[in-house]
Nucleic acid binder design. Structure first.
Length: 591
RNA sequence: GCCAGCGUAGCUCAGGGGUAGAGCAGCGGUUUCGUAAACCGCAGGCCAUCGGUUCAAAUCCGAUCGCUGGCUCCA
């Protein structure tokens, strides 16, 4: 039921297949696909017994999956790559051919995965492509010849299950990057390097925001600066809750397992839950807030007049994510969400979703995020609720999305209701799922939720699970990678560093500090025995928005010399009060 | 959970069967400086953990834990 899975899709998940080539032209796809064939040719030459999986073009390049007699190491890549270059130098043509299905089966009789693919095809014929004596089952299209395949570089080896199913054998996948020109390839490699520089795990350390310790795997420790940012995020959301009619509640951390049996999590989510025992009674640490919120709903009798009822909860959640799936802040085992559950009537669904979208836009703007991509996930085959309810619900969501560009995805909804997901691209063009708004017909049923109607009957409300930031941990991670650690002023853990030029300026610097703090600004004095240049360098490295240099001249004029983080811009001296006003205005507009 | 790689000082990394090295950070001192790194000195490590091979293991082997890149999962 919930809602916010923490997953991101930086590499594109299966449902991102559509549109993943957006911006890539047909020729480029041909090149990438052809390079995959050339890689298979090279690997087959090195390992004649290799069994071939599939080798498609993907965003930024291509891959091919192999079953090999031994595991590959990164050291194998140069040889494969140089064989590919030989193939390219040969300028051999790609030749397409149609074969009768039976002949195709014969042709690939020593390639079990290819046979499996042919068998799964309904067609009478199969198409193959050949170059330099290497033949692959393939729909094409391909480049004209092996030399027309742009600039490529093999990047890494990885494990991948045949047909993406973990019950199937695991193949070895080799990933390569490919672009039309060397310049574009270099730019891509540059982007990868930049992504490493912006890696939120690295920034977390460098900026003293958070760290991880094996004593609590996949669970972040927030240092004072990180906790400051975290709390500012929460404060901001709380302000919006006032404006959007939410009431915050606080619910228990650990519940009797009975709750999870009632909600259905015990049957379907157990492997991700932390269980604990006390006095022979089993408890579950909450992985989601929704069942607890149902308990809160049930604690009082609700009039139709009270709906929609919006309960917000920043409660800490724990999910025992499988080892191997955790990653920095973006997939953790302990986190909290800007979570809320809305209980409402069916005829209120559309207005609630419209309001959610408005709120979401306000939030994204404040954090400097781009307008997201919207998806509307519709009813799956396995579901609860009547068709009539689904009809009304799906239409309500469509209406809420009217005027926005969105994509409908059949069958992708949860069994308990349709949902709207939002995907945002960061500064490096990677896409992340942040907000999710999910309708739920199931939990109100399981918990027997009711409200009293105008004519004194009992009706069942529906429930909306919604999070805008999602996991606060993950949002912070994404935000860090988006802004490279340079938080906007309102979010910066340290908004200004006061830099005395010499020791004799420290007392004045302290007076300035006192005034700034009294004005609500978060500031520090750098009174280390260092030269001003070093202090500026460090403050820039810490992404502090303002550096206030104070020396003889400033002290005489009750001023500060203001330097901005952006572009090393030097605004020169200004009266201290002017700076305070300026900063407060910037904060007020969340600039 | 699966495949592969990695784990040496707080951080980034070098070394590699014969008693452990650098830069940055830290600490002490000198310097008191006008917009991106002053200088000198000191201290800091059971080389992840456990076990094995060996006269000798940080180094080779195995297991465990953690991390990384993928895959799968994300009621």
């Amino acid at each position: 039921m919930s809602h916010q899975h923490q997953t991101s899709t930086p590499e594109g998940s299966s449902d991102a297949l559509e549109g993943r080539y957006a911006g890539d032209n047909e020729a480029l796809i041909r090149m990438r696909h052809s390079a995959a064939h050339m890689m298979a040719e090279a690997v087959l030459a090195m390992f004649p017994d290799a069994k071939l999986g599939i080798g498609p073009p993907i965003d930024d390049g291509f891959y091919y999956d192999f079953l090999l007699p031994r595991t590959l190491t990164p050291d194998d890549l140069p040889e494969i790559e140089s064989r590919m270059r030989e193939s390219a130098a040969a300028a051999a043509p790609f030749i397409a051919e149609e074969l009768p299905r039976e002949e195709g089966l014969r042709r690939f009789s020593d390639q079990p995965f290819k046979v499996e693919i042919i068998e799964s095809l309904a067609d009478d014929t199969v198409s193959i492509f050949s170059h330099r004596g290497f033949t692959d089952l393939c729909q094409g299209p391909h480049a004209e010849s092996t030399d027309r395949t742009g600039a490529f570089k093999l990047l890494r080896v990885a494990g991948a299950y045949w047909r993406g199913d973990e019950r199937n054998p695991q193949l070895q996948r080799i990933y390569g990057a490919l672009f039309e020109t060397q310049e574009e390839l270099d730019a891509h490699l540059q982007r990868i390097a930049e992504a490493e520089r912006r890696d939120h795990r690295r920034l977390g350390r460098e900026l003293d925001l958070f760290f991880f310790d094996p004593i609590a795997p996949a669970s972040p420790f927030f240092l004072p600066k990180g906790a400051t940012v975290y709390n500012l995020m929460v404060d901001f959301i709380r302000e919006l809750y006032d404006a959007y009619g939410y009431r915050e509640i606080i619910t228990p951390q650990i519940f009797l397992s009975d709750l999870w049996k009632r909600s259905g999590h015990y049957d379907n989510y157990l492997e991700s839950m932390y269980l604990t025992q006390s006095d022979d009674i089993e408890y579950g640490v909450k992985p989601m807030n929704c069942p607890g919120h149902c308990v809160v709903y049930l604690s009082q009798l609700h009039s139709y007049r009270a709906l929609p009822l919006r309960y917000a909860d920043f409660g800490r959640l724990h999910r025992n994510e499988r080892s191997g799936v955790t990653h920095g802040l973006t997939r953790v085992r302990s986190f909290s969400q800007d979570d809320a559950h809305i209980f409402c009537r069916i005829d209120q669904i559309q207005e609630e979703f419209s309001s959610l979208i408005r709120m979401m836009r306000e939030v994204y703007a404040a954090f400097g995020l781009n307008e997201p991509r919207y998806t509307l996930s519709l009813r799956p085959d396995q579901r609860v609720g009547s068709d009539e309810t689904w009809d009304r619900a799906e239409q309500a969501l469509r209406d809420a999305l009217a005027g926005t560009d969105y994509e409908e995805i059949p069958n992708e909804g949860a069994f308990y209701g349709p949902k709207i997901d939002l995907f945002s691209r960061d500064a490096l063009r990677r896409e992340w799922q942040l907000s999710t708004f999910q309708l739920d017909f199931n939990l109100p049923e399981r918990f027997g939720l009711e409200y009293v109607t105008e004519d004194n009957r009992r009706e069942r409300p529906v429930m909306i699970h919604r999070a805008i930031l999602g996991s606060l941990e993950r949002f912070l991670g994404v935000l860090l990678e988006h802004n490279a650690g340079a938080f906007p002023l309102w979010l910066a853990p340290v908004q200004a560093v006061i830099i005395p030029i010499a020791d004799r300026h420290v007392p004045y610097a302290r007076r300035v500090e006192t005034r700034l703090r009294a004005s609500g600004l978060r500031c520090e004095i750098d009174d280390r025995n260092e030269r001003m240049n070093a202090k500026i360098r460090d403050a820039q490295g810490q992404r502090v928005p303002y550096m206030l240099v104070v020396g003889d001249r400033e002290e005489a004029a009750d001023a500060v010399a203001v330097r901005r983080r952006e572009n090393s811009e030097n605004l020169g001296p200004m009266p201290t009060d002017d700076f305070i006003t300026r900063a407060q205005e910037e904060i007020a507009q969340r600039g």
